[in-house]
Amino acid sequence: MCLNLLPLAMAEPVVLDGASQFALHSRHTGRDYRIYLSVPAVPPPAGGYPVLYALDGDASFARLHQANPREASVFERLRQHGPVVPQPGVVVGIGYGRPFSQTMDLRAEDYTPPLSCQGCELSSPRHGGADAFARFINEELKPEVARRLPLNPARQSLFGHSYGGLFTVYQLLRQPQSFQHFFAISPSLWFGDRALLAAPVPALPVAAPRLLVLWVGQDEQPASYDLAVARQRQQRLQQNRMVSNTAELHARLYGLPGLVSDYRVVPGHDHGQMHGYAIDRALAIAFSPAWQPGH
């Protein structure tokens, strides 16, 4: 059988229907970012759209956009199948405009706190730019998105996985006022000799509690050596202590006034699989009417 395939040069690029993007330069990091937008085709709820800011947007945005209900017909179908329907919300993907495999140094610098680097990731020598990156998000990106869209400033979420999860925890500890929901998925709490596990915990607004989502895959930290798994990878997984570190952070923050936590160890999921698991579930929480301020 002969297949007549068009040369790649003659093929058309895939376009995400209903999505858009723009470039934004940061004076705080000195870097250009590609910002992806998923905007509902229906009017915002009272007070404006809730919004979820997603790190690693080059890799995460397409799936988040697909999972984001935007059309009136979709909301009607959701109302027929369940009592709790998410409200229309905006997804903002923060990326670098290049394949994820080419972003290691960029995200290693932007997403990691200025800590001692004895426990840093050896694959990237750059680290410690989280404060500048946070200023980009809060002082440059948020105002620009708010200029373009009617957003609810009291219903904002931050979503990060791995290094992005580390940055999300860092933001909760440093600037809890910047977001209402913090989705820290498989956070790299091993970074900097686990310094964030001993970082000071700020006072949180009791009248409007923050939500911390801590999800980690059970397979991210094997209980014992498995001869079927490469020894080097197995040692790295055990040294990173992904499950133990996340459990320790949860235990430290559990019951803190002004904080509600959703802690899960997900069976049958490794580090990479947790990204997809979280994307499929995060929007339902971030855009739920049950999670408005004061609820």
Rank of each mutant, 00 (worst) to 15 (best):
Y53C: 03
Q66K: 11
V15N: 00
P45G: 04
S244E: 15
Y277W: 12
P88W: 13
Q234Y: 07
K142F: 10
Q239V: 09
V84T: 09
L141Y: 06
A203T: 13
L283V: 02
P293H: 11
G93S: 05
Y163P: 10
L212E: 08
S178G: 08
R31C: 08
V42Q: 02
Y33K: 04
G93P: 12
Q221K: 08
L55R: 01
G160S: 13
E248K: 13
A207V: 10
M274T: 09
P187L: 08
P293L: 05
S123C: 03
S186L: 11
A208V: 12
S162E: 01
R135E: 09
L78R: 14
F191P: 02
V14F: 07
V85W: 03
A108Y: 04
L259K: 00
L122G: 01
R79D: 06
H161Q: 15
V266F: 11
P44I: 00
L166Y: 06
P222C: 05
Q221S: 11
V42T: 03
G47L: 06
V206K: 13
R98W: 02
F75V: 09
T246H: 07
Y33T: 03
P143G: 15
D262I: 03
P289F: 02
P150V: 04
A223C: 00
R77N: 12
H25A: 14
G48C: 04
